[in-house]
Structures are given as C-alpha cells and as structure tokens.
Simulated assay, not measured.
Amino acid sequence: MTLTKADIVREVYMHHDEFTKEKSVEAVETLLRLAKDKLISGEDLLLSGFGKFSVRDKRERKGRNPQTGSELMLAPRRVVTFSPSGILREKVNQK
C-alpha cells in the first residue's frame, strides 16, 4: 500500500492534539516545499535516521528506442537519488 500525502496529514493530525486539520496540512506542505526547494537548487537533503536525497547530474548518453531499436542520444539531465540511513536500512531488513 502506498503512503500518500493525505495519509501523512492524517497521521500528523491524529498524533498532535494541538493541530487542526488545516495546521496539519500546512505543516506537511511546508516540509515538502522546503525539501523541494533544496533539491531544485541542487542541495542535498539529509533527514537523520531516514536517509539522504541527493541531486546528481547525468551526462549525455546513447540510448535505444525499445519499440524501433533505433539508437538516439539522451540529453543530459538531473536526477534525485535516495540513500537510506543505516538505521532505516537495518529496520527494513529485520525479520
């Protein structure tokens, strides 16, 4: 099952009695906006105990159209990668 933004807002609302639903939405939106702004500017985002989001530059490279088999050049681009923290990795791999 996928965790959605609405699910996160609901969890924030349920675990913080002092938050209204509107405040919960505002808190989640603010966190996501800050994260997006940092990544868009090329900075890393480190969430202790969770992991690190990094922006990486990909060079131009050869590609292939899977339908026709013809070769083409893929333009350079930026991608976001995620590396889980050791703590998260251990918890995910516990049996």
Score class of each variant (00 low, 15 high):
2 T>H: 07
2 T>P: 02
4 T>L: 09
4 T>D: 14
5 K>N: 09
6 A>R: 04
6 A>I: 06
6 A>H: 02
7 D>Q: 05
7 D>Y: 08
8 I>C: 06
8 I>S: 02
9 V>N: 07
11 E>I: 06
11 E>R: 08
11 E>D: 15
12 V>Y: 07
12 V>M: 07
12 V>C: 05
14 M>T: 11
15 H>S: 08
16 H>T: 08
18 E>S: 08
19 F>D: 09
21 K>L: 12
22 E>T: 15
22 E>A: 14
23 K>G: 11
23 K>N: 14
24 S>I: 07
26 E>M: 09
28 V>M: 02
29 E>R: 03
29 E>P: 00
30 T>F: 12
32 L>N: 07
32 L>Y: 08
33 R>T: 15
34 L>K: 03
34 L>S: 12
34 L>M: 07
38 K>N: 14
38 K>Y: 12
40 I>C: 02
40 I>G: 01
41 S>N: 04
41 S>C: 13
42 G>L: 14
43 E>D: 15
44 D>G: 13
45 L>S: 06
46 L>H: 08
47 L>F: 15
47 L>T: 05
49 G>H: 03
50 F>L: 13
51 G>R: 06
52 K>S: 11
52 K>R: 10
53 F>W: 10
54 S>V: 11
55 V>C: 14
55 V>Y: 03
57 D>I: 10
57 D>T: 13
58 K>Q: 12
59 R>Q: 13
60 E>W: 01
60 E>C: 02
61 R>I: 12
61 R>E: 14
63 G>S: 07
65 N>R: 00
66 P>L: 13
67 Q>I: 00
67 Q>Y: 01
69 G>F: 01
69 G>W: 00
71 E>F: 04
72 L>R: 01
74 L>Y: 00
74 L>T: 00
75 A>I: 03
76 P>E: 11
77 R>H: 07
78 R>A: 15
78 R>W: 05
80 V>C: 09
81 T>A: 13
82 F>Y: 11
83 S>V: 10
83 S>P: 00
83 S>D: 03
85 S>I: 04
85 S>T: 05
85 S>R: 03
86 G>I: 05
86 G>R: 05
86 G>D: 12
87 I>S: 10
87 I>D: 09
87 I>P: 00
89 R>I: 05
91 K>A: 11
92 V>K: 02
93 N>E: 13
93 N>M: 07
94 Q>S: 14
94 Q>C: 09
95 K>M: 08
95 K>G: 13
95 K>R: 10
95 K>F: 11
